[in-house]
């Protein structure tokens, strides 16, 4: 449960959300409060405060190894917190599994996987059910739902082929369809744009944003490059070596806020087409620019 007014935890970093009225927390589908995670004796992150409401699109950014995937796992209930609280749809993480869709990081099927795209999507619908699947009404509904999902992610051309033979972008759409199978209210995506070309990045970003808006799904997407999703974002969670910042993209992805986070001068530049380039951060550029022009 979210306990409003519990301000005892001291966020080490500036947090835009920190001072929001408590009424806001009540409508949040995900509420992370002053959370910290310790892995192998090492504090991955701490003092993280995030609230995500229905239909919001939130990005988690930060350098490699800073704990972005760990944050998603904590929200899923797969990672225990060292301190703080997370509530998902008003319950403890992991209690509301069917309402949360998840796409793990860097998942791809190698060519030996003998399953079709529709079989993979189907696992999202009834893969966790016990008992024999019987023909009849349920089976018809399931087939109908698979068709809906295939159409939603626009995978009709290849959904009946073996997933192992599909391209990275095509596999990603199949997996997003699988994650959406239960009509989740929350979608957690871990670098879904990874290893996609620019047109595919744009297409998947648009697709996710459309799903988020039209179906009121709260989306938390870990991203390596913020540019493909920048214009859809409501909020950014930036995990850095010195702590974390949460807020609207403009405010978080600014020279001042990132300089404070990295503890060294960092400059954020805007190109004429609205892309962001970060200059001067120590390693692992996060919102970096692709030199090739986008769409």
């Amino acid at each position: 449960m979210i306990r409003p007014g519990d301000g005892s935890g001291q966020p080490v970093t500036p947090s835009d959300d920190g001072g929001r009225p408590t009424g806001e927390a009540a409508t949040a589908v995900i509420a992370v409060h002053d959370a910290a995670v310790v892995l192998g004796g090492h504090r991955v992150w701490h003092g993280v405060d995030v609230r995500v409401s229905a239909g919001e699109f939130v990005a988690v950014l930060g350098p490699n190894g800073v704990g972005k995937s760990t944050l998603l796992k904590a929200i899923l209930g797969l990672q225990r917190l060292a301190s703080g609280r997370i509530s998902v749809l008003g319950a403890a993480p992991g209690r509301t599994r069917s309402s949360v869709g998840y796409l793990p990081q860097r998942r791809s099927f190698d060519s030996s996987v003998r399953m079709r795209g529709v079989d993979v999507i189907r696992l999202g619908i009834d893969g966790s059910r016990w008992g024999l699947p019987l023909p009849g009404r349920v089976a018809r509904q399931r087939r109908q739902r698979i068709d809906e999902l295939v159409e939603l992610v626009d995978a009709g051309r290849y959904a009946h082929r073996l997933v192992g033979e599909l391209s990275g972008g095509e596999q990603q759409r199949i997996l997003i369809a699988q994650a959406l199978a239960h009509r989740p209210r929350i979608l957690l995506l871990d670098e879904p744009l990874d290893s996609l070309d620019l047109p595919n990045q744009a297409a998947i970003a648009g697709l996710v944003s459309r799903i988020s808006r039209s179906q009121e799904v709260a989306v938390v997407m870990v991203a390596h490059d913020v540019n493909p999703i920048l214009r859809y974002l409501d909020r950014v969670v930036y995990l850095g070596p010195g702590g974390s910042v949460v807020g609207p993209p403009d405010r978080v992805l600014s020279s001042d806020s990132l300089s404070a986070l990295y503890g060294t001068p960092v400059e954020v530049l805007r190109t004429s087409d609205g892309r962001m380039v970060v200059v001067g951060q120590p390693d692992s550029p996060v919102p970096h620019d692709h030199q090739q022009g986008g769409d």
Binding site: R107, L123, G127
Partner: peptide
């Protein structure tokens, strides 16, 4: 079947 083809997603799905 789910756990055999895709353990991580299966675990998340309960």
């Amino acid at each position: 079947l789910f756990a055999s083809t895709d353990a991580e997603s299966a675990r998340v799905a309960g």
